[in-house]
Amino acid sequence: MIQLKNISKSFSSKKNEEVIALKDVSLEVKKGEIFGVIGYSGAGKSTLVRCVNLLEKPTSGEVFVNGENLSAMSSAKLRETRQKIGMIFQGFNLLKTATVFDNIAIPLKLTGVPKADISKRVTKYLDIVGLSEKHHVYPSQLSGGQKQRVAIARALSHEPEVLLSDEATSALDPETTHSILDLLLKINKEFGITILLITHEMHVIQKICDRVAVMENGEVVEQGAVIDLYSNPQHGTTKKFVNSLFPNDIPNEILEDLQKQGPIIDLTFIGTSTDKPALSMVSKKFNVHTNILSGNIIQLKDKPFGKLTAHIQGDKSETDKALAYLQNEGVQVNEVSKK
């Protein structure tokens, strides 16, 4: 549905120095999926998502949406195509002097939607986002979450095939964020709209995304299914994001002391393996003692996912049997080494 081919983007600074925001980025977002792009501040995420609808024109590379090359379109054709690409922003971008109804209706009017259809669409999409009673109130009378729902209704009112989300939940409190993410899941499921979102928050990725790309310094350093990146991150930046959910910072002095008594291991549990008491069974089956040093279990979009750091104390022959048993039970096992 969305294909970015070798996208690069550079700007000129106030000192006329070249600032490279994107470097040869290629991504493909499949029809109907929710694809996340995550990175720290300055990674190039916002520039990337704005290149999809050419709010930012790439310095080089091509942008395809639903098989059409936006990079080669005339201005008139591009304006028409953008109507099928909705976008929501961190700052809501609502007209303060217009009612909720008019905030949605005015853009429809400007794009030539008939008056009778405008009223039907505004009513329909305000109902979908849960604001059917807010037609005639003003943005100043709404909470942050309600303002974002208006912005989502406005984007949906053009009945897009693609929805772009530029840090849409980062200005919201955790409870409101979860409700907005649930709304995006609902929209994706009921309307089949492809969603590309950018964020710096791991819980956004884990809750609703099917696949994810990790950015750093204008480049995509790793991408794939969410479950794969969580269970086996390769790049240092990806590891930092995952470790923020599963911290296991054990001082080297303690590592050395414990490792004299047996291995320290990272255990990854995916899906049904999170329900098995595999670690507790180890102590019963083998002549070892287990001690959990840190751990957490979270819910990804489709399945539970957990990581534990544990110390297995005992003779090498017994600890080897214990580790083999854990692996046979579907647990991913990696031995922790000194930093």
Rank of each mutant, 00 (worst) to 15 (best):
191 F>Q: 11
194 T>G: 05
198 I>Q: 09
199 T>W: 04
199 T>F: 04
201 E>Q: 07
203 H>T: 14
205 I>R: 12
206 Q>K: 09
207 K>N: 10
208 I>D: 04
209 C>G: 02
209 C>H: 02
211 R>C: 05
213 A>R: 14
214 V>C: 01
214 V>N: 04
220 V>Y: 11
223 Q>M: 15
224 G>C: 03
225 A>V: 10
225 A>P: 00
226 V>S: 08
227 I>T: 11
231 S>Y: 08
235 H>S: 11
239 K>W: 00
240 K>L: 15
240 K>D: 15
241 F>A: 02
242 V>A: 06
243 N>L: 08
244 S>N: 03
246 F>R: 04
247 P>F: 10
247 P>K: 07
249 D>E: 15
250 I>K: 04
253 E>G: 00
254 I>N: 03
256 E>H: 07
256 E>I: 11
257 D>R: 08
257 D>T: 06
257 D>K: 07
258 L>E: 11
258 L>V: 11
259 Q>M: 11
260 K>L: 15
260 K>Q: 14
261 Q>S: 12
263 P>A: 09
265 I>E: 07
266 D>I: 12
267 L>A: 04
269 F>M: 02
270 I>E: 02
271 G>A: 13
274 T>A: 05
275 D>M: 12
275 D>R: 14
276 K>Q: 12
277 P>Y: 09
278 A>N: 14
280 S>T: 14
281 M>N: 12
281 M>V: 08
282 V>N: 02
285 K>T: 04
287 N>K: 13
288 V>F: 07
288 V>T: 07
289 H>C: 03
290 T>L: 02
291 N>K: 09
291 N>V: 14
292 I>F: 03
292 I>P: 01
292 I>H: 02
292 I>R: 09
293 L>W: 06
294 S>K: 06
296 N>I: 01
297 I>F: 07
300 L>W: 14
300 L>G: 03
301 K>C: 03
304 P>E: 12
306 G>T: 12
308 L>H: 10
309 T>W: 00
309 T>C: 02
311 H>S: 02
311 H>V: 13
312 I>C: 01
312 I>S: 09
314 G>Y: 07
314 G>I: 11
315 D>N: 05
